[in-house]
Design a protein around this nucleic acid. Structure first.
Lengths: 154, 154
DNA sequence: AGCGTGGCTTGACTCAATCCAAAACGAGAT
DNA sequence: ATCTCGTTTTGGATTGAGTCAAGCCACGCT
């Protein structure tokens, strides 16, 4: 998911946001990578070549982008808040052990809200917590070797 | 869910934990309330009458209790880690707006893992994110009054 | 009574995130 | 091209959650 300079600045203007170089760099950074970086990681990437965006600005800009719907805030584990430019509805999987995050294609949560006894209208997204394949495999082999099974999650 | 002094100290001894007054106070605090307090809140409750349990001890004790399976650590939003003495498997619902947490009775996640295309063995718990009934109602009435819909989540 | 180990306390420290006042900037108006 | 004003950015201070290390304390054992 990439976007030209013009597309990015247009999407800023459409939402009444000034197109500053800082916001541009931050949004581009998120569009370029399909992962879920923290504010600190974005700060690092944007300033890799020449530090010219302050930490406070990264937070300010991210909040402006979230507010305007260009970026989604992802609060999953207990670690720092993460951000993504993948704004279509989807769910998340988080590995309890290594903290890996996977996007899960959207499905209607009707079945789950029914089971949970909740109002179906109230659910926005689902987070699945568990072990990712590599951690599951590693844990299995540690078990069979009689090693300590669980060092510590993240 | 209450427990006598003897029951609590027995459950400590069963797991090879010394029953200190600090640990006792912390576990009792969690058993008494069905909510999901943070370490800081527990620290406040335990020291309400007479401050004699340090912050580090609250963290140490909570970790010891989690390790021994008497307490469960709940990492949901981006706010502080929460703890509960409700250790039977269950899921959680978190309100995006006010941060309220509800326990959801356990159900097998088979249906969901299938839809998500994951290994069923890998899922430990599910977190449902959305709006609790009060926030849903409030948001609806704000909408119809043309007020700003969303102050800010937690 | 003396010992040793585990638990508690204090205070310093880290890391994420926010706040603040001042300076810099962007975009529409002239 | 320049002005102007409201918006952004900045860097530093600050808050809050959580960890760490060193020393003290207390319980259980001989």
């Amino acid at each position: 998911m990439t976007a030209t300079r013009a597309e990015i600045s247009a999407s800023f203007r459409d939402r009444g946001l000034r197109c500053t170089s800082q916001r541009y760099a931050i949004l581009q950074c998120l569009l370029k990578r399909p992962c879920h970086p923290t504010a600190e990681e974005i700060h690092g990437v944007v300033n890799r070549h020449d530090p010219r965006v302050s930490r406070a600005t990264v937070y300010n800009s991210l909040h402006a982008l979230v507010q305007s719907g260009l970026v989604r805030e992802v609060k999953l584990g207990a670690d720092a808040t993460r951000f993504e430019a993948h704004i279509e509805s989807h769910h998340h999987f988080v590995c309890d052990h290594c903290g890996a995050i996977e996007d899960i294609a959207w499905f209607e949560p009707g079945e789950i809200t029914r089971r949970a006894g909740l109002n179906p209208r109230s659910i926005r997204a689902i987070v699945l917590q568990g072990l990712c394949e590599p951690c599951l495999a590693r844990q299995k082999s540690l078990r069979s070797n009689n090693c300590l099974p669980n060092p510590n999650a993240r």
